[in-house]
């Protein structure tokens, strides 16, 4: 299978105006992914499926990821004036990345027996109902999985034939896998709580009676 840079170059050549990016993946796994833009995502996906060298016709997994706002600190060597002399010193620079939601597709080729190629789509922001183009018409196995991402993250897939909740019930209004989801409070009976669960369970404990002798205890 050709490398991801070659795939990117050929896709940008085949579809005019398409802007792809490679998201690197440092570490032993070494699986970089292709980030597609919204307008040309459908065309690029069709290209990936139809191209004779690639023939990526099996989408095995579609997941969602929730990225919150984060600041990344980088150490950068900067030339600065120190006591009148220009020196190169190390400075910590902060870069702010606003949060977004992502849909990650793992596609394989059954014909050529290669893969996986990881394809990503990013929303502009983390609003509920953030739109993304649906790749279900290209890979049918994405149908239920995009419904699951809609159910759990709130990404609205445009062009999906049947977008409704799949795992939670239809009247549910929250999107549970988001990092800022707060689950309902049913911690009445917790025999062995600790950490966060302990905090939540304490809301239900009976209030301590006013005079039970604890006021006479002194810290030793």
């Amino acid at each position: 299978m050709e490398s991801i840079e070659e795939m990117k170059a050929r896709a940008e050549q085949a579809i005019s105006g398409a802007r792809l990016e490679i998201v690197p993946n440092p570490g032993p796994a070494g699986q970089p992914s292709l980030l597609l833009d919204h307008e040309h995502a459908f065309a690029v996906a069709n290209f990936l499926r139809a191209d004779p060298a690639l023939r990526l016709d099996y989408c095995s997994n579609v997941t969602g990821v929730d990225w919150l706002d984060r600041t990344v600190k980088k150490k950068v060597k900067v030339k600065k004036l120190v006591d009148g002399v220009e020196k190169e010193i190390e400075e910590t620079q902060e870069e702010f990345f606003p949060g977004y939601l992502e849909a990650v597709y793992h596609v394989y080729s059954i014909e050529h027996k290669h893969g996986p190629v990881v394809v990503r789509l990013r929303t502009r922001d983390r609003a509920e109902g953030a739109p993304l183009p649906s790749l279900t018409p290209v890979w049918r196995s994405a149908e239920f999985q995009e419904r699951e991402i809609y159910d759990l993250y709130g990404i609205h897939f445009e062009g999906h034939p049947d977008l409704r909740r799949i795992l939670m019930w239809d009247e549910f209004t929250d999107f549970p896998m988001r990092k800022d989801y707060r689950e309902p409070d049913d911690y009445e009976y917790e025999p062995t709580p600790h950490d966060e669960v302990l905090e939540k369970a304490k809301q239900h404990y009976a209030p301590r009676p006013a005079e039970d002798g604890a006021e006479h205890l002194a810290a030793d």
Binding site: F144, R165, I166, L167, M168, P176, M177, K179, E196
Partner: peptide
């Protein structure tokens, strides 16, 4: 679906 959705992913966050 959904009658046995046991949210392993959410638990895996913690």
């Amino acid at each position: 679906f959904g009658y046995l959705h046991r949210n392993h992913e959410k638990i895996g966050e913690n």
